[in-house]
Design a protein around this nucleic acid. Sequence first.
DNA 1: GCTAGATACGTACAATTGAACGTTAATATA
DNA 2: TATATTAACGTTCAATTGTACGTATCTAGC
Lengths: 129, 129
Amino acid sequence: MMAKDRPPLAKSELEVARIVWQLGEATVRQVHEALPDDRDLDFWTVQTYLRRLREKGYLTATRRGQGNVYAPAVKPGKVIGELTDDFLDRLFDGEALPLVQHLIDAHRLSADDIELLQRRLEELKGGEK
Amino acid sequence: MMAKDRPPLAKSELEVARIVWQLGEATVRQVHEALPDDRDLDFWTVQTYLRRLREKGYLTATRRGQGNVYAPAVKPGKVIGELTDDFLDRLFDGEALPLVQHLIDAHRLSADDIELLQRRLEELKGGEK
DNA sequence: GCTAGATACGTACAATTGAACGTTAATATA
DNA sequence: TATATTAACGTTCAATTGTACGTATCTAGC
């Protein structure tokens, strides 16, 4: 089920796409307003990114009222998975373990995270569906 | 100890940098020869990337014999850490757990990996230095 | 139905990146 | 020591990205 893959997602495009993902669907204005305070993008710039995202096949645009409503054309999880795979390939030869290792060594996991992970791993060993 | 950070590492540059990291130090020729078979970069292109990497502060170049020997100017682990942080920020709001979660869900961890991880996590809970 | 206001879309432009070459300078060997 | 070889460095050039605007178009209220 190798899906036709889209042109790469640029950094700024991802930033904007994630907002749409979080909102489920959104207008240009909503995305613009949802930008973090320290991120000062022009309204028109946001519009450009949304258009590019649509052109690249990441978002759909549907006319509603005065403007478009943008929504995911591909499941966010899928895109995140692809980006993660790409990152893994480029930096860790596709191996997840060294990355996790790295996260542990760099203390990126809290005590709670570790608790939770242990439980996850445990049930993974048991009930591999 | 916030180090002065270098200009961003482009994709192709990372590719080349990783080879130097793996070899410890290397000449243009060595890097060129160490490229994966399916990656056909011109010798001169490799040279360009190595020069850019030096200019950006990722590698050092030392004259030896007929040409330069390139070596890490910054510890690879540090660069990998920065890239990982950046990736985490951009895609997971800086949270490592959702990423690991994702790796688990996407079956990127083998049974052996899980075994190993469990041991790592166990000893982390015990002997947190 | 007409007009004002808001939006889409194409367009623009500088900076960065991917890729490669030409000229100059240094090395090694005859 | 002269010459052939090899690599450094600057330079080039197209594609992509980050950012923004102008004009055509659509919607909504009058």
